[in-house]
């Protein structure tokens, strides 16, 4: 059974990957993917993301998550599950 999740790239992350969106899979021997491992996988796949991750964080299912996998709002630890929507979020500049 495929254990896929989506990754969305915005702003400088999109420029670094030349992609808006990718479908990736959780390894067969795992149920979930820890966030530090996800970041290692993404930077191996797209070396340009190394510079982006100096200031970027992630969002998982619309919740901001730091590099350790801790939600900025509330501090809950999360891992990536099948069906999740992950986004690479460079520092925001709305307004």
């Amino acid at each position: 059974m495929a254990k896929n999740f989506q990754v969305l790239y915005f702003a400088s992350a999109r420029d670094a990957t030349l992609a808006r969106e990718e479908t990736l899979s959780i390894p067969d021997d795992c149920h979930t993917l820890p966030v530090p491992q996800l970041i290692r996988n993404l930077t191996a796949r797209h070396p340009g993301l190394q510079a982006v991750f100096k200031s970027a964080i992630l969002a998982i299912n619309n919740q901001y998550v730091d590099h350790a996998g801790r939600e900025l709002d509330g501090g809950r630890m999360v891992e990536v599950k099948p069906g999740d929507e992950v986004a690479v979020i460079p520092p925001v500049s709305g307004g």
Partner: peptide, 12 residues
């Protein structure tokens, strides 16, 4: 406006 600039995922 301050909160928008802190945390809404929009980029310029």
């Amino acid at each position: 406006l301050d909160e928008l600039k802190r945390r809404v995922p929009i980029w310029k």
